[in-house]
Computed example of a mutant assay.
Amino acid sequence: MTDNTVSNAVAVRDNGPGAMVEHYRNDLAMVMPSHVKPDTFVRLAVGVLRRDKNLALAAQNNPAALMGALMDAAQLGLTPGTEQYYLVPRKQKGRLEIQGIRGYQGEIELIYRAGAVSSVIVEVVRQADTFRYSPGRDERPEHEIDWDAEDRGELRLVYAYAVMKDGATSKVVVLNRAQVMKAKAMSQGSDSAYSPWQKHEEAMWMKTAAHRLTKWVPTSAEYMREQLRAQAEVAAEQRPAVGTSAPQAPMPAPASVEDDEDEGPIEGEVVDDEPAAREWPAAAQPGAGARQ
């Protein structure tokens, strides 16, 4: 390898998409949640660009689209280039550009991070599985899988629900194939060969159900801060003034989380208020903010 070849390679590296991400490290850090380490975030983002030539080309074609996706991931505190937050190339006006898509692990991470749930269950149902659930009659879905089967068949349903910290259970979301395909059709670039809908179909079914679940459970760290603030106010009100022996007022019941009336279930979606739940590991598996 000649000196000129080495120099050209260094120049491309230093002026490519990776260098731009490094340049905007401080801007990304300003919008990240406190638990995210900027150095780790930037290193992972640069790494995925260097490993995927299509992503690198898309980033060069439209650097603003790259930084927009990374800024979105940074604000959400999700890891880019993973199943928390996909970075995918898509064709826009005849050329590849980067699109950011929140993955199912990202949806679950945001639910856990709010601090209101102890477990989240998201599962797909295939043709060979046995699935029974009747809202108002069944406490929770019954899902039986033959793990010895060589082929469980096509994807048929997907469901999601959460168990709250106080033991209550969120609504149960159940979507059939037609509903998932409707969500897919609304997702930009879902028909592209690069789309996670093409490469990670099962994960995107799960992401769709998890995303619907976010309508019924807290997904913001602001929720936890509000709970802590309310607890502090209650404690201050109960503390008697110096030199008095006034009895403490009874602690009010915890405020319930209200459903957003403007974000109700999609047409035909099955939900229920009080099913029990089977446990899933309490940590969201790290490792796509998403647009639908």
Rank of each mutant, 00 (worst) to 15 (best):
R132C: 05
P135Y: 04
P17V: 02
V174R: 05
Y85N: 09
S118K: 12
E142I: 06
A168V: 08
E97G: 05
A230M: 10
A277M: 08
A193R: 10
R177P: 00
I101T: 05
D27A: 15
M181K: 14
M71W: 00
G100Y: 04
R177D: 14
R291Y: 03
G81S: 07
R229Q: 14
D39I: 05
A149S: 15
V46S: 01
A114L: 07
Q238Y: 02
E22P: 00
I145G: 11
N62S: 15
Y194V: 03
R102M: 08
I121G: 05
E233S: 14
G81P: 06
V124C: 10
A235E: 15
P247Y: 02
A19E: 10
A288W: 04
V163G: 14
E261Y: 00
S192P: 02
E22C: 08
S192H: 07
A65R: 09
T169W: 01
Y159G: 12
E144V: 06
Y112T: 05
Q75A: 12
E274V: 06
T2M: 08
L28C: 05
H35Q: 12
E226K: 15
E97Y: 00
D273M: 10
E269A: 15
K37C: 08
D191A: 13
V31P: 00
E202K: 12
R113A: 04
V117H: 03
A246T: 13
S7I: 06
N62F: 00
E123K: 15
D27L: 07
N54G: 05
G106R: 03
L78H: 02
P80A: 10
D27E: 14
D72Y: 01
S119M: 07
E258W: 01
L76K: 04
M206F: 01
S256N: 11
S190H: 14
D262S: 12
D27T: 12
P80F: 08
E144S: 11
Q60S: 13
L228V: 09
Q231V: 06
P265G: 14
G68T: 05
A19Q: 11
M251D: 13
R102W: 02
E107K: 06
Y112Q: 07
G81A: 09
G189H: 01
R212H: 10
Y194G: 08
